[in-house]
C-alpha cells in the first residue's frame, strides 16, 4: 500500500488493523465557543454496522457529520484531533471534501429527494462524476434502486417526481441515490425516525445486505433498532447541559446491551433516563 501525501504530512501510519475503516483519535468539536464533543476516540470497523446511541443533544449527529465533513458547511465550527479513513487524515490540508463525500455517503433524518424525477435523483451522483452514456446510467439506476430495496415499487414510474413517493419510499430512493456513487461508508442520521414501519423493515433488511460491501454508521434513538441492526454500539452522553458530550462506552452490540461496563450505559439502555 502506498502512503499518500496526506498520511506522510499528518504522520499517521496506515491503520495497523485492516478491519478498521475509520479511526478517531482524541476528537474535540466546537460550534463557535461551544464545545460539543470532547476527546472522542474509537475505531469504526470495516463492513460492519456501527450504531451511535444516546439521549437527544448528545452530539451523535455532530460526530457523524465530522466523517463526511458536512460540518465544514456550518460557519464557525472547528475541531481538534484526528479522523482517518483507511489510514488517511480526512482533515489534512489539501484533502478535497467533495471527493471525501463521494466515498462517504449520507442519509438524513428527513427524506430529501431532489425535486426531479426518480431516475434523475439516482443518476445525480453518477452524472456529477462524469457518467454520460444512457446505457451506463440506466444500469446504475436499476442496480442502485434494487440495492435500496425500492426497485419493485418504482420501476414503472421512473419518470415521476421523487417527491410524489411516500416518505418511506423517498428514504429508500435517497439510499439508492447515495449507493449510485458506490460509497465505501454510509452514514445514516436517524434514517427511520420519520417513516412508516414497513419501510423501516425494508431499510433494516437492506442494511444487513449492504454491510458486506459498505461500512455503515447509524445514529438512532430506537434502542431496539440499534440492537437489531448493529454489530457495534457507541453510547454518547452529555452529562451536564452546556458541557461537551463524550463517548461513554463502545463495544460489541451484544455486550453493550447485555453486560454494559459503565453504569451510565446500563441506566440508559434500561430506560432509566434519556
Amino acid at each position: 500500500m502506498n502512503h499518500t501525501l496526506a498520511e506522510l504530512q499528518s504522520g499517521v501510519a496506515p491503520a495497523a488493523d485492516p478491519t478498521v475503516k475509520i479511526a478517531v483519535k482524541g476528537l474535540d468539536f466546537f460550534y463557535g465557543d461551544f464545545q460539543a464533543l470532547t476527546d472522542i476516540t474509537c475505531d469504526i470497523r470495516d463492513n460492519a454496522v456501527t450504531a451511535f446511541i444516546g439521549p437527544s443533544g448528545c452530539g451523535k449527529s455532530t460526530f457523524l457529520r465530522c466523517f463526511n465533513r458536512m460540518n465544514d458547511l456550518i460557519i464557525g465550527t472547528k475541531h481538534a484531533g484526528l479522523i482517518t479513513l483507511d489510514g488517511q487524515d480526512i482533515y489534512a490540508p489539501g484533502v478535497d471534501p467533495v471527493d471525501l463525500r463521494r466515498r462517504i455517503g449520507m442519509i438524513f433524518q428527513q427524506p430529501n429527494p431532489f425535486p426531479m424525477s426518480i431516475y434523475d435523483n439516482v443518476a445525480y451522483g453518477p452524472r456529477l462524476h462524469g457518467m454520460k452514456k444512457k446505457a451506463d446510467l440506466d444500469e446504475v439506476v436499476e442496480t442502485s434502486l434494487k440495492r435500496a430495496n425500492v426497485w419493485k415499487e418504482v420501476k414503472d414510474i421512473l419518470g415521476r417526481g421523487g417527491l410524489t413517493l411516500s416518505g418511506g419510499q423517498q428514504q429508500r430512493l435517497c439510499i439508492a441515490r447515495v449507493l449510485a456513487v458506490q460509497p465505501d461508508v454510509l452514514l445514516m442520521d436517524e434514517p427511520c425516525s420519520a417513516i412508516d414501519p414497513t419501510s423501516v423493515q425494508k431499510i433494516e433488511d437492506l442494511m444487513a445486505e449492504l454491510k458486506s460491501s459498505v461500512t455503515i454508521i447509524i445514529v438512532t434513538h430506537n434502542m431496539q433498532q440499534a440492537a437489531r441492526v448493529s454489530d457495534e454500539t457507541a453510547f454518547f452522553l452529555q452529562e451536564v447541559m452546556g458541557e461537551p458530550a463524550m463517548l461513554v462506552e463502545f463495544g460489541r452490540t451484544a455486550e453493550i446491551f447485555t453486560s454494559p461496563k459503565d453504569k451510565r450505559t446500563e441506566d440508559y439502555i434500561t430506560g432509566r433516563f434519556g
Partner: peptide, 9 residues
C-alpha cells in the same frame, strides 16, 4: 445538504 453530501460542489 443532500447535494453537498453527494459530493457536489
Amino acid at each position: 445538504e443532500a447535494s453537498y453530501a453527494m459530493g457536489a460542489t
